[in-house]
């Protein structure tokens, strides 16, 4: 760490905006700044919309392909249905500011409301939101 610090940056341009600005110049920079922010975020919005469309289309195609049964599969006998629910549960749940007892109660309420057994639901995390 001897000597001077070395930093790399884009080629420095002479900066005319440093120092005291008049009100008029300030207004111009403020408008320019808002335009840059809007331009960046609107462009980002368009990119996100394209991203969402492309990925959704791909997901739909994949789903449609999965629905068409392959001829070999169609010939196979139907798997035996289990009426009893799958035993046990798997996975981990993250709790943030939530008591395990409260979490268990919340999961039970959700399962009851949806009418599904707990082992068919996947809870990722439970977080307390202070209003």
């Amino acid at each position: 760490m001897d000597g001077t610090m070395v930093t790399t940056a884009a080629p420095a341009a002479t900066n005319l905006a440093v120092g005291n600005l008049t009100f008029g110049e300030g207004v111009l920079y403020a408008i320019l700044g808002m335009l840059v922010v809007f331009f960046a975020l609107v462009f980002l919005m368009i990119i996100i919309k394209i991203l969402v469309k492309v990925t959704d289309k791909k997901a739909q195609k994949a789903q449609a392909a999965a629905k068409i049964p392959a001829p070999e599969e169609a010939a196979l006998p139907e798997p035996v249905r289990r009426d009893d629910p799958a035993p046990g549960t798997a996975g981990e749940i993250k709790l943030y500011n939530t008591d395990p007892k409260d979490a268990a109660m919340i999961m039970a309420i959700v399962a009851d409301t949806l009418g599904k057994p707990l082992n068919e639901l996947r809870f990722k995390s439970i977080r307390e939101i202070k209003g």
Binding site: G33, M34, V37, F38, L41, M45, I48
Partner: peptide
């Protein structure tokens, strides 16, 4: 994604 517009508008305070 329209939320981004609101995020941009709220930068008015800075300028």
């Amino acid at each position: 994604p329209k939320s981004l517009l609101l995020g941009a508008a709220a930068q008015l305070g800075i300028f």
